[in-house]
Amino acid sequence: MNKELEHKFVTELQDNQNIVHKVCTLYTNDRDSHNDLFQEITIQLWKAYPKFRGEAKFSTWMYRVALNTAITLYRKNKKRIDTADYESIIFKIKADEYDETEELQLKLMYKAVKQLGDVDKALVFLYLEDKNYTEISDTLGISEVNARVKMNRIKTKLRTILKP
């Protein structure tokens, strides 16, 4: 039974691993921390798996566990702020070349998102994953109205990062 559960879990996670990779990319700055966070999320997913029982889609359930692990349970990314500061210096100089190509614009957007705080990142992540505000508010535990308000503030914040 246990072996069967194990096999089912690993297969499902393998199929959906892109979601976890995306969370790790947002919340870490180097390959080692990326792998470390991936591992912690995997452990948390596995521990919670017996309670999952297929009530929701595997991927829906993954979002919650992965984000909870990244913003609440995981505590190793201490140097994050320094790196973000560093990035913002380079980034603000480059912002002059704004509008040039779509590629560059995207690159700048990614950098801007990475400079956001943990909670803001979680909102942006769910937004980018095309979750509606009901799902976003359910996952984070805030009201739908506040999820919208917060998202608007994040948009303003991103704008100031992009055009200082």
Partner: peptide, 24 residues
């Protein structure tokens, strides 16, 4: 986007589930 991260194999993930958690 498929991030520039090597995909983990079944064995990689299987190994991970028995690692110790270091959560808060």
């Amino acid at each position: 986007k498929e991030f520039d991260i090597p995909k983990l194999s079944y064995e990689d993930i299987h190994k991970m589930i028995w690692k110790k958690s270091s959560s808060v």
